[in-house]
Nucleic acid binder design. Structure first.
Lengths: 147, 147
DNA sequence: CGAGATTTGTTTCCTAGTCAACATGAAATG
DNA sequence: CATTTCATGTTGACTAGGAAACAAATCTCG
């Protein structure tokens, strides 16, 4: 009947490794009262504050709905604030408290990465980065609107 | 202050690519009325039928609770059945209908993989497979109990 | 044998994110 | 200008899965 092996699919292993990495990371940042998506959200604003929700959605590869709810949670935690921007538009910005949390979280991200990928040789790490970068570029994943 | 870039982390790119691949695949298999997790579940049984829920959970890297719910859904769709196995234990098995769906789904998995990774050279594909395999092994992800 | 310890599958609670419908404001077109 | 079109952010319904508390059955040893 010729059914390809499940384990032949790169997508399968990619999902398996990615889930493991993310779950471990989730446990780590939970100690700071933050989820992975919230961290990405904050990190994105840290890099370029004062961003509109729609733009952030594109950058994070999520829907506007998800961003809206994330913003709700982060606002409730006092880490992010919504600034009005004429008419219906709004601007998302880190609060000082939110901003002050970023370094500790970044350290956790470093640790988690080291824990998973530190075992690979320098060359292998570079190769993995190159391959992922190539895939991202090919499918226009990071390219959306970084404006 | 020295905060590492979000994009410096391999875990970040891994998640980004993995999510994109999985989401696309999800759309494809949805046409067969199945989700990604359901496909992995069925594929695992196709490879080795008559497996206990706990063993399957380990193989799929999910909790027993998730498997329990997945089994509910698949049973409702008539694709999987629960066989009693003495006392509290049970055995999961594909129904003929479930089994007959596997080849079409496998073809979709092939297509999706080709769509994402087909653009890479043979060498790059092999390299990616090797790196992912190495990460899986290092963290004992697939190794759990394949008994 | 029998009381505690383990294992197994289920359930509840919670967080998360997609999709689609919506409301509201801005822009475009006649 | 008025009206249609479009873009923006929000909401509700739904699917998903983890964590932890459970119930039921089995094991383990004194």
């Amino acid at each position: 009947m010729s059914v390809s092996n499940l384990t032949d699919h790169l997508g399968y292993w990619l999902r398996m490794v990615s889930n493991a990495v993310s779950q471990d990371f989730a446990r780590k940042v939970a100690s700071e009262g933050v989820t992975v998506a919230e961290w990405v959200f904050m990190r994105a604003l840290f890099e370029k504050d004062e961003t509109a929700p729609t733009a952030l959605a594109a950058r994070m590869g999520m829907t506007r709905g998800a961003i809206s709810k994330l913003a709700d949670r982060l606002e409730a935690k006092g880490l992010v604030e919504r600034l009005e921007a004429g008419g219906r538009g709004q601007i998302l910005s880190l609060t000082p408290e939110g901003r002050s949390k970023v370094p500790a979280l970044a350290r956790m991200a470093d640790e988690n990465d080291a824990e998973y990928f530190g075992g690979l040789s320098r060359d292998d790490q570079a190769a993995l980065a190159r391959l992922l970068g190539s895939l991202v570029e090919r499918r226009g994943l990071g390219t959306i609107p970084l404006d």
